[in-house]
C-alpha cells in the first residue's frame, strides 16, 4: 500500500489549507463552547444534568450484564484482614439503644414487622469473604456472616415486595439511607450481616445488623439497618444526593 501523489497548483494548496485550518479552528471553538455549556448546566442531585442522564442510562446498559450467578471472587478466611477499615460513621449515632433495636420491615403501608436480632439469627447463616470495594478506590478482603437477603425475603413472605424495583434502607437515626435495585439485593452474596471475623459486629461496623452487598461499592453497604422498605421509584440515597451514581453496581 503506497500513498497517492498528485501534482497541483500552489493556489490549490493554499485554498485547501485555508479551508482545512478554518474547519479545524471552528471545531476547536465548538468543543470549547460545548465544554463551557456542560459546566453551566444545572445540577440534578449534585451532578451536572447531562452527566446525570448518562449515568442513569449506564444503569440500564449495565443491568443487562447483571446476573445473580456472577459472583464476586471469594477468599479463604485466612486472607481476611484482622483489622477492618472504618471509613464512615454517618447514621451511627452515639446514643443508640441496643436493647430496643428492632428491624422495622415495612412490607406495605400499614403492614410493618418488627424483627429482633435473634429472629434474624435463626435463619440459615451464610459467610461471605470478599474484596470489599470502596468508591474511593481502595479495597480490603473482609469476612462477614449473616442471612442471605433472598432467604430472609422468602422467610418473611416478601414475594411481591421483591418484585418491586428498589429496596430502601434507613439507619435508626434517619441520618444515612440508601436505595438499591432489588435484583442486586437478591444476589447470592447479598447478606443481612451480624458477624464480622466470626464475632458480633462492632458498633462502628453497624451493630446489630448491616448490609453486605458485594455487587455494590461500600457506600451501599448500610451500617445499622433501622428500616427496610420497597418501592418502584428510587428510594432516597445519601451519596446519590451528593453527586454520585445511583446504581454503583460492580
Amino acid at each position: 500500500m503506497d500513498q497517492k501523489e498528485k501534482v497541483v497548483s500552489e493556489k490549490y494548496i493554499r485554498n485547501k489549507t485555508i479551508v482545512a485550518f478554518g474547519i479545524f479552528v471552528i471545531l476547536i471553538i465548538c468543543s470549547l463552547l460545548a465544554w463551557k455549556w456542560l459546566q453551566n448546566q444545572p445540577r440534578e442531585e449534585g451532578a451536572l444534568r447531562p452527566l446525570r442522564k448518562v449515568l442513569n442510562a449506564n444503569e440500564i446498559v449495565f443491568q443487562n450484564l447483571y446476573s445473580t450467578g456472577n459472583l464476586s471472587k471469594v477468599y479463604p478466611a485466612s486472607k481476611a484482614a484482622p483489622r477492618v477499615r472504618v471509613n464512615g460513621d454517618a447514621g451511627l449515632a452515639d446514643n443508640f439503644d441496643t436493647a430496643s433495636w428492632r428491624l422495622k420491615l415495612t412490607r406495605s403501608p400499614g403492614d410493618t414487622l418488627f424483627i429482633t436480632l435473634d429472629d434474624v439469627k435463626k435463619l440459615p447463616k451464610t459467610e461471605v469473604i470478599f474484596d470489599f470495594k470502596c468508591i474511593e478506590g481502595w479495597s480490603q478482603v473482609t469476612h462477614w456472616a449473616g442471612v442471605r437477603f433472598s432467604e430472609f425475603a422468602k422467610h418473611y413472605g416478601l414475594n411481591d415486595q421483591t418484585k418491586s424495583l428498589y429496596t430502601g434502607l434507613i439507619t435508626p437515626d434517619q441520618e444515612y439511607y440508601v436505595g438499591i435495585d432489588t435484583k442486586s439485593m437478591m444476589h447470592d452474596q447479598t447478606i443481612l450481616c451480624y458477624e464480622m471475623n466470626g464475632k458480633p459486629l462492632p458498633m462502628n461496623q453497624g451493630y446489630p445488623l448491616r448490609l453486605i452487598i458485594p455487587v455494590k461499592y461500600g457506600v451501599k453497604h448500610l451500617k445499622r439497618i433501622g428500616t427496610m422498605y420497597f418501592s418502584n421509584s428510587r428510594p432516597k440515597d445519601y451519596w446519590f444526593e451528593r453527586g454520585y451514581d445511583y446504581y454503583c453496581g460492580l
Binding site: 450484564l65 456472577n70 459472583l71 471472587k73 460492580l250
Partner: peptide, 21 residues
C-alpha cells in the same frame, strides 16, 4: 475495575481488582 463482580473473569485476567487499577 468498573464491573469487577459482573466481569470477574476480566478482573482476574488483569491479576485482580487492585492490579487492574
Amino acid at each position: 475495575i468498573y464491573k469487577p463482580a459482573q466481569l470477574n473473569w476480566l478482573c482476574t485476567i488483569f491479576g485482580g481488582y487492585e492490579w487492574a487499577r
